[in-house]
Design a protein around this nucleic acid. Sequence first.
DNA 1: ATGACGATTTACT
DNA 2: GTAAATCGTCATA
Length: 198
Amino acid sequence: MRRLDNGTRLSGIIVETEAYCGHPDRAAHSYNGHRSARNESMYGEPGTAYVYFTYGMHHCVNVVCGRADHPVAVLLRALEPDEGIDAMRAHRTGRSSRALRDRDLCSGPGKLCAALAIDRDLDGEDLVSGKRLWVELVRARAYPASALTNAARVGVESAGDWAGKPLRWYLTASGHVSRRGTRHKAQVTRRPGRGGGP
DNA sequence: ATGACGATTTACT
DNA sequence: GTAAATCGTCATA
């Protein structure tokens, strides 16, 4: 993923994602066909950015993957910082003067948005041909399916049957994923289906 | 108009 | 481990 922020280039390799599967997915903002000004971009063309604001202080960014009017999207949960690391650190440094390590800059959906200066102003951006924020295929051959871990999504405990579905994907060996150091339920490494995986 | 609640992060015990 | 921070959105009145 790359960002051009007032002339500063910020980029990172996507190492963790989660899928949100539209109408039937109780954890998705588009559950049961919910549609409002907030999530309108989920109903856009595939490749559209869906950026939302949550908990009164954080932004999260998704890549819309379903056809127009099919509100399916993939949440970007972590990046391995690449370009513009100093600028990312500056964006992430809040009150604490303690310097963050590289692996803490983008290891969460809210963190990566702060690091790349992503907010609602970028909601609806075309991530294929956008000039401010876009996704490129990089180093694709370096990661065989066996390098991926497939697990339950984070923060969707109240989503009933959908809470436990293995829709989170991350590079097993990456030191840049979210929730390091916390134990989670049994994870199953699987071969991704068509279009699956980060 | 009012109240509850987040696809989270951070600080603190 | 638990709790606070902080506000747009949505359901209810």
